[in-house]
Design a binder for these strands. Structure first.
Length: 214
DNA sequence: GACCAGGCACATC
DNA sequence: GATGTGCATGGT
């Protein structure tokens, strides 16, 4: 492990000690996790929760349920999550993909190796790198590190990367330094989001930050 | 009322 | 490859 790896480990340990495990991803089923990953694109989680509640009440938070509902109807149900017409289309595209490739069964995605599954997910309109990796890590429980806006901001402020690093470069750095560990990737990403929400914001509020002095 | 939120696709240079 | 824009609701 290099110097960056040691800093990453220190970050992880400090955060875990300061705020405890985050128990991610909030969601009762792999399908729910995937829906959440699409709905939370550039959107606060509180808005996503409202949309997911609506989906549950409508009885369409499942592959067959979502397949059966009309796209405009789906859009109305997920309205609180924002970008709702766009996201209704994206959810539909994903469900179509799930039926075409895996007979509508999320668990059958596990039979595919990570690399080729990631490639396939990225071809689905509306699924980019972060959403694909969130699905692989949090819905399927396979080791891949998720990079998001918070991750880049925090790492760049702590000089682990520079701002212009690509998604894959940041991901590769972390996975190279830390080795492949689902538990670590899961918890670390969740902790970074927590840090980003509470301290490492666009306008930083560094007072009391667990990473002070690092 | 501005600013922000757990991105992504697409157009343009 | 880099940069800019549309997509929309709800909380601070």
């Amino acid at each position: 492990m290099g110097q960056k790896g040691k800093i990453l480990v220190e970050m992880y340990e400090r955060l875990l000690r300061a705020v405890g495990p985050r128990h991610w991803w909030p969601g009762e089923s792999p399908f729910e996790v995937i829906v959440g990953a699409i709905l939370t694109q550039n959107t606060s989680w509180s808005n996503v929760e409202k949309a997911i509640d609506n989906l549950k009440k409508a009885g369409i938070l499942s592959a067959p349920g979502m397949r059966g509902v009309d796209r405009d109807e789906l859009a109305q149900v997920i309205k609180p999550s924002g970008f709702y017409r766009l996201k209704a289309k994206r959810l539909k595209r994903f469900v179509d993909f799930l039926y075409e490739e895996f007979d509508g069964d999320v668990n059958r995605m596990r039979s595919q190796d990570r690399g080729s599954l990631r490639e396939k997910l990225l071809k689905v309109d509306g699924i980019g790198p972060e959403t694909a990796d969130s699905i692989i890590l949090y819905a399927l429980g396979e080791p891949i590190f998720v990079v998001d806006a918070y991750t880049k901001r925090i790492f760049s402020r702590h000089k682990l990367i520079s701002e212009n690093w690509s998604y894959e470069e940041v991901q590769g750095m972390v996975m190279g330094e830390l080795g492949r560990d689902v538990g670590i990737y899961n918890e670390f990403h969740a902790l970074l989001v927590f840090l980003g929400k509470h301290w490492c914001r666009r306008v930083p509020r560094c007072g009391g930050c667990p990473l002070e002095g690092l």
